[in-house]
């Protein structure tokens, strides 16, 4: 129920490629994945995909452009989701960082929403969501520590888990200790 409304609200962010996203149905894709690493023919287009909860552990998977991020998070916030975590993935072959935001709900309408956005590796800049979720503060600082992703507008972007003079980002795939 809540998954439907959230999905509709999130899909409204993608007026044109919505049709393109619909072409990739959720279930066949995941079953194919059993056989071979999934080939999506290039980078995945922005849009919302409904995932199989039993397989992936979340319901909605939204990939948004960097400038749509705030809107998407706002939608999630209005639907009373709580913030689970923020993290990054270094896709070094594609030269991109992926920033992943996890949201979930406190009530019994289980719905886990994943919002991802991709930024180029050489200039990773993402707007901060601390204005919407105060709890994103530490998660963003941690992601900044580990990947060097800059969260524009973050009030206090200094190393949190790493030493205060750390100038390295250990979770980058090209990090050599």
């Amino acid at each position: 129920m809540i998954a439907e409304t959230t999905k509709k609200a999130l899909q409204a962010l993608f007026p044109e490629p919505a049709a393109a996203v619909e072409e990739i149905p959720a279930s066949p894709e995941t079953e194919e994945a059993d056989k071979a690493p999934k080939k999506e023919a290039g980078p995945r287009p922005n849009g919302v995909i409904e995932r199989d909860y039993a397989v992936h552990g979340y319901h909605l998977d939204a990939q948004v452009a960097v400038d749509q991020l705030i809107d998407a998070v706002n939608i999630v916030d209005q639907n009373e989701f709580f913030i689970e975590t923020i993290t990054g993935v270094d896709w070094i072959k594609e030269g991109e960082f992926e920033v992943i935001y996890d949201f979930s709900r406190y009530d019994f309408e289980v719905c886990r929403v994943v919002i991802r956005t991709r930024v180029p590796r050489d200039n990773p800049q993402v707007p901060t969501i601390t204005g919407i979720y105060a709890g994103a503060n530490w998660h963003e600082r941690e992601t900044h520590d580990f990947f060097g992703i800059k969260f524009e507008g973050h009030p206090h972007l200094i190393p949190l888990l790493l030493p205060e003079d750390a100038d390295f980002h250990p979770l980058r795939k090209d990090f050599k200790p």
């Binding site: 994945a33 992936h56 975590t85 993290t87």
Partner: peptide, 25 residues
């Protein structure tokens, strides 16, 4: 594991613990 992006939450003594596994196979 198969390539993909997986999330699992469990309730530990201290709360909701989540594992996000991004696998490339």
């Amino acid at each position: 594991p198969n390539a993909g992006d997986y999330y699992q939450a469990v309730e530990t003594a201290r709360g909701s613990f989540g594992v996000r596994l991004v696998s490339d196979g």
